[in-house]
Design a protein around this nucleic acid. Structure first.
Length: 322
DNA sequence: AAGCAAATCAACCGCAACGAA
DNA sequence: CTTCGTTGCGGTTGATTTGCT
């Protein structure tokens, strides 16, 4: 069993018999052999029944006369026991990952393949990082989420040793409250600046918070305020020019950029507002931090923008003016 | 100590993507 | 091209833990 933040502890049978026992009994009663059902029902009424061992006493359902209408009939659900973990771990170490559908049968587990995969991915893998999410990791999650939305698997791929499930839970229990407790959640309509969130699971999306996105913003903020919209896809809505070139000449566009930045950075306010004497100073620090967060972006900017300190100051002055 | 509410997180479910036949 | 099986993803649930009164 896993402790509050991932430490492994001795696993015992669940103190409360949750739905797995009910499901086993019910499904067996209704779907499987009538001769087996009473045995299951009576066993399930005993305290501390070992369901894992119980599985080995069954005649496999597929070996019975009639194929089950649902492959999940008789499968165990709910929390994994240490014994199951051990069986799964031993099997995967011996045979490797994959073939999840056949794995439970081959390993002797009364679980569905999905459940085995999930258990391995989220808990049993050797390369999982245990312990609390660090401040750095939290920052990464927030930034990636601002760029990618609920693409948990992609976000997780940027955090070695962390799983999508873990990050998703952390977001839902910690970060979303932290953020949306500070400012109201973005409106659902088009005024939401996060209009460049990629479509859900279409092809192989980008796997990191693209430096291009941030570079676009920087590109708009600084320089000659001209951006080639044929190569940049996440400009503020309505900013694209028909000729493929966007010229930042209207106040509205700057407001768009500012709004985007606020939407991506307002979480910082809570933790920084006491560290800086003025909001402008905080804005400066955070904007710079935001822009340089990505190494690729920093490299790109130095190569493509030849950014000097004066230009940076001008950029900040312009950005912070209102 | 007891009761309750809120927070946490493991695990399930449905669905879509993908590849093989 | 279609169908089917498998895998992976994201949303959600609910058991358990934690904190408060």
């Amino acid at each position: 069993m896993e402790g509050p933040r991932g430490e492994v502890t001795t696993v015992e049978e669940p103190r409360v018999q949750n739905r797995e026992s009910v499901d086993v009994a019910q499904s067996a009663t209704t779907e499987a052999s009538a001769s087996v059902a009473p045995t299951i029902k009576s066993l399930s009424q005993l305290p501390s029944i070992n369901y894992l061992n119980l599985s080995f006493t069954f005649t496999p359902i597929e070996d019975m006369g009639r194929a089950p209408c649902c492959e999940k009939v008789g499968l165990k659900k709910g929390r994994w026991t240490a014994q199951e973990d051990q069986i799964l771990t031993n099997y995967i170490r011996a045979n490797g990952e994959g073939s999840w559908r056949s794995l439970p049968k081959n390993a002797g587990l009364l679980r569905c393949g999905k459940s085995c995969r999930l258990r391995w991915i989220n808990y049993l893998r050797d390369d999982l990082k245990r312990g609390n999410i660090s401040a750095q990791e939290e920052q990464t999650i927030i930034q990636l989420h601002a760029s990618l939305g609920n693409r948990w698997s992609i976000i997780a791929s940027e955090l070695p040793g962390r799983t999508d499930n873990e990050i998703k839970n952390y977001w839902n229990s910690h970060l979303s409250r932290k953020i949306y407790g500070l400012r109201p959640p973005p409106p659902a309509d088009n005024s939401n600046r996060n209009t460049h969130t990629p479509p859900k699971r279409k092809g192989r999306g980008r796997t990191s918070p693209s430096s291009e996105d941030l570079l676009e913003v920087l590109d708009i903020i600084m320089g000659d305020h001209t951006v080639d919209t044929t190569t940049h896809s996440c400009l503020p809505e309505g900013a694209s020019g028909g000729d493929g070139v966007f010229k930042l000449s209207e106040e509205r566009e700057r407001n768009d950029v500012q709004e985007e930045w606020y939407n991506n950075n307002y979480w910082e306010w809570d933790s920084h507002q006491n560290e800086c004497s003025s909001s402008d100073e905080w804005h400066k620090q955070n904007l710079l931090s935001w822009l340089w967060e990505d190494d690729d972006l920093e490299r790109d900017c130095h190569v493509t923008a030849e950014l000097d300190s004066q230009k940076l100051d001008d950029m900040l002055a312009w950005f912070l003016s209102s």
